[in-house]
């Protein structure tokens, strides 16, 4: 069993508190993604789990055993680094078998495990190359292979795809997802890319300033964000936020759940843009970003300010065009003065 429990975990660098009182339960075989903006502490939390950083408060258990003071190599975890961290002086085969060699595993067993991992990751033909002779995607596969051969209970990925180009990233994302399905191990993945988080995760942990903002499935986070931060962080393009006072009376009267709902959130795909400027909410197109499948319109709405809308029809209105918009009232999110989702409480 490789379930993980973090109870009141804290990490400080001197007086700087980077992780603050994190409670988290990760089930065996779960794919958990830590997301959050730069500097939120997601990588530090991962490093605390790996053992590369000491925990300054709280408890970490893996498979029921307390791991706070256990060295990194003895926690049963393997890490895939953002920069791959392959040993440049060793060939792919030696890189993958290095950890086993250090642990004094018998040579035939090392060879068997390396060959098996290489087959899984389609690295068979690259085993005798040096890392410098590999492409970015191949290096990443070797880094994953190095993690696999140790048969860890938990895989840790620290932004493993951020050095790859967009196309390769999509491909590797699918490979990692496939790998999780095949191996069934617990995986913890750090990214700042919420698309990666949404597509890979069973469970997403949203972090801000070293604290957990929300934990839930991708759907949970998308449809039931606990506050404006999560609402805006999950989903691309990000959710629009309006002051409730600026909304037309008919929306306020029919859709607002309670007077304390001070702000309304609406995703760009739930705003319908009409070419004529005679609706209840009107505005001007500030910018039109053509994305192929549609256009992302930057609108300046009267009384509501700037917002984003996805226009998926034919020709989108040009910059400067006057338009009106219709809000899908059933998809409105309401937040109170403290930015908490009113529906969740």
């Amino acid at each position: 069993m490789a379930d993980l429990t973090l109870t009141g975990v804290c990490k400080s660098f001197g007086k700087l508190e980077v992780i603050r009182n994190v409670d988290l339960q990760i089930e065996d075989g779960e794919f958990v993604v830590f997301v959050g903006p730069s500097g939120c502490g997601k990588s530090t939390l991962l490093r605390c789990i790996s053992g590369l950083e000491d925990i300054t408060g709280g408890t970490l258990t893996i498979g029921g055993e307390r791991m706070n003071d256990v060295p990194a190599a003895k926690r049963g975890v393997a890490m895939v680094f953002q920069s791959y961290a392959l040993y440049p002086h060793l060939r792919v085969r030696e890189n993958m078998g290095f950890g086993l060699k250090v642990r004094k595993v018998a040579k035939p067993e090392i060879e068997r495990r390396v060959d098996e991992a290489a087959r899984t990751l389609k690295l068979d033909s690259l085993l005798d190359r040096f890392p410098r002779e590999l492409s970015g995607g191949q290096r990443q596969r070797v880094a994953i292979g190095r993690a696999i051969v140790g048969n860890p209970e938990v895989f840790l990925f620290d932004e493993p795809l951020s050095n790859l180009d967009a196309e390769l990233r999509v491909h590797m994302r699918a490979e990692i997802s496939g790998l999780h399905k095949r191996l069934g191990n617990t995986m913890i993945y750090v990214t700042h890319d919420q698309i990666e988080a949404m597509t890979l995760a069973d469970k997403i942990v949203v972090l801000r300033d070293g604290m957990v903002e929300q934990i839930g499935s991708p759907r949970d986070l998308y449809y039931r964000p606990v506050n404006t931060f999560v609402a805006q962080f999950i989903g691309s393009p990000k959710m629009n936020l309006f002051d409730a006072s600026g909304l037309p009376a008919n929306i306020l009267d029919t859709a607002r759940p309670a007077p304390r709902a001070a702000r309304a959130g609406l995703r760009p795909e739930d705003i319908r843009v009409l070419p004529s400027a005679d609706g209840p909410v009107t505005g001007r197109v500030v910018n039109n970003e053509y994305t192929g499948a549609g256009s992302l319109l930057h609108l300046d709405l009267e009384g509501l300010g700037q917002c984003l809308a996805i226009y998926s029809g034919g020709d989108a209105p040009d910059e400067g065009a006057h338009v009106s918009v219709e809000f899908d009232r059933s998809r409105l999110y309401w937040f109170d003065e403290q930015e908490r989702n009113v529906a969740i409480g």
Partner: peptide
């Protein structure tokens, strides 16, 4: 990260020096 990878692989401080840092 190379040292960190070596730590994850189970090398001691001297092992990291001898097997990773020095050859590089």
């Amino acid at each position: 990260e190379l040292e960190e990878a070596a730590r994850m692989d189970g090398l001691s401080r001297f092992g990291i020096f001898w097997k990773v840092a020095l050859p590089l």
